[in-house]
């Protein structure tokens, strides 16, 4: 049984930009992986093609078939986690064995007040449209 897990300290999964994300990764593979990496990254989902960016990487030195490691990342000032009707952006920490193509992940939220920014509400109507309507009538 192959397992890769990422645990954030205190079970916390919401952070302010600039805060430290700390925790522990553990793995149990059938054989020692060629390499093992802990990655901090963001990714988009929604209507558009998905984008992602790996912001920071900690490489596990000479990994055995099983083991554990503590990690610590400092979050950048952005982008915030947000959710819209077309685009959603989320953050995660992932433990990856690239050559074996396996991973374990923990999602997190990065934003002001440690909340995801919601941009899915409808805006008020445009006054310009009102101008055009009033001229037309």
């Amino acid at each position: 049984m192959t397992t890769l897990t990422v645990e954030l300290d205190g079970g916390r999964n919401a952070f302010l930009p600039g805060e430290a994300v700390e925790g522990q990764v553990s793995w149990d593979l059938e054989a020692a992986p060629r390499s093992l990496e802990v990655r901090l990254f963001w990714y988009t989902s929604g209507r558009g093609d998905a984008d992602q960016e790996v912001v920071a990487v900690e490489e596990v030195p000479t990994p055995a078939a099983s083991g554990w490691l503590r990690f610590s990342f400092r979050l950048p000032p952005g982008p915030y986690s947000f959710s819209g009707q077309l685009v959603t952006l989320a953050w995660a920490v992932e433990l990856v064995a690239p050559a074996e193509g396996v991973a374990g992940r923990a999602d997190l939220v990065v934003g002001p007040e440690r909340h995801e920014v919601r941009i899915d509400a409808e805006p008020p109507p445009s006054p310009i449209q009102k101008t055009r309507k009033s001229r037309g009538s």
Binding site: Q52, V96, P98, V102, A103
Partner: peptide, 12 residues
Amino acid sequence: PPAGASAPRSQR
């Protein structure tokens, strides 16, 4: 990926 693990979401 084998049972118990998922494919990586991040790509470097």
